[in-house]
Design a protein around this nucleic acid. Structure first.
Length: 194
DNA sequence: GCTAATCTCATCACACGCAGTGTGATGAGCCCATTAGC
């Protein structure tokens, strides 16, 4: 997938002052064993399952989420999960499957002041590094992983907005060109009538 | 080189308010995404 130029600019910006990336987590053999086993049972664990795993191997839930994402991408697990009930081959009970289907993290609702802080930070730098994200997270009192998601969504929706804006501008230009063309044509016809 | 971290894009899910919009959460990535730390 092609990336925009901006992410590369962001990397440059971040390297100037703050730490750009979170330091790499290194899982122990024991932790990996637990993760692999959990993956073989269910490659799409719900939020509570991920939280449970996080407690079990003493890490953050967001690290579990990333691990499962990477594992799915690299171990040929291409089939998307069926909504709600799965096949009888699955290890989870039907009840558990239903819960997993709906088991998302509770939606974070930001107060207007939290949003203002995030928006200000976004204006300053749409690609904050781990240090800035952690600082922001502490300032507004939400986990760093939520700040990261907020910035991802914000960038994404801004791109869509810009794209729509450009399309509308193009439409306006096309419309103006058509009007000019029609006027010219009418004038031509009128001239020939004279 | 392996793989955690990060990115974009698409989509789901839910709140708000009553049909559609806004936005947080999640998953894929097909030359099987790219970048970068160990």
């Amino acid at each position: 997938m092609q990336h925009d130029f901006i992410p590369y600019l962001k990397t440059l910006l971040n390297t100037v002052a703050t730490k750009c990336r979170r330091s790499r987590t290194s899982f122990t053999e024991e932790q990996l064993k637990i993760l692999v086993q959990a993956f073989s049972q269910n490659p799409y664990p719900g939020y509570t399952a991920k939280q449970r795993l996080a407690v079990e191997i003493n890490t953050e839930e967001s690290r579990i989420q990333i691990w499962f994402q990477n594992r799915r991408a690299r171990h040929g697990f291409l089939e998307r999960p069926k909504k709600n009930l799965g096949s009888s081959k699955d290890h989870a009970s039907p009840k558990e499957k239903i819960q997993d289907g709906r088991d998302r993290r509770c939606r974070t609702s930001y107060s207007s002041s939290q949003l203002q802080t995030l928006k200000n930070a976004f204006t300053e730098n749409p690609y904050p590094g781990i240090d800035s994200r952690e600082q922001l997270a502490e300032e507004i009192g939400v986990p760093e992983s939520r700040v990261q998601i907020w910035f991802q969504n914000r960038r994404s929706r801004l791109r869509i907005q810009r794209k729509r804006g450009l399309e509308e501008t193009d439409d306006t230009k096309n419309h103006a060109a058509l009007v000019t063309k029609s006027r010219f044509r009418v004038q031509q016809v009128l001239r020939t009538m004279k």
